[in-house]
Amino acid sequence: MPNPPELTPEQQKELQEKLKNMSPEELQEFQKQQCIFCQIVSGKIPSKKIYEDEKVIAILDINPAAKGHLLLLPKEHYSIMPQIPDEDLSHLFLIAKQLSKKMLQKMKVAGTSIFIANGLAAGQRAQHFMIHIIPRKQGDGVLPLNEQLQDKEMLQNIKTAVQPKLLNQLGIKQKEPAVEKTPKSQKEEKEEDNDVNLDDIANLFK
């Protein structure tokens, strides 16, 4: 991936001033202008396009995990997955399926990995949401997932913390007499107070 040019301290200061005074719309526009992948979408930066329709493009990664590694991205600028409308996200996955199938047939590989990183902590490098589609061969050492046994209490704690948020996302009201035996009221109240602002995670890239 090409790096943006280095700025002098004066230029950085000027830039920070400029950013501070921008409206959210202006800021979004500014992010798009700075985004390398938006420039690939618009053709300002050349790329090897494998697939394109009105919503998405897929290009060959020039620094791949394996030969044939593709980056599938929405043409619209989104930083992280939660910002993407359902319709567009499900379209991306359908195209990922088609490209994966093509990979299995053309690259003579026995598997593919689909990989998404949301947020810097997840290893996201670019400020433009993308789905990696990676051709895989036995023993290539890419993306090892070493699962370990988790104890029962841990599983229950995770369920208690995540399930209400998920049901809320799905618009399902949870029955009041909670099935869980673990006490949760205090913890839950605390969590309500410091709900994560997804915009903060997305804006870490600016």
Partner: peptide, 14 residues
């Protein structure tokens, strides 16, 4: 502060 979404598709992919 982040999530990874991963599909391992085929035994060669783990």
């Amino acid at each position: 502060t982040g999530t990874n979404v991963i599909i391992q598709n085929g035994t060669a992919a783990g």
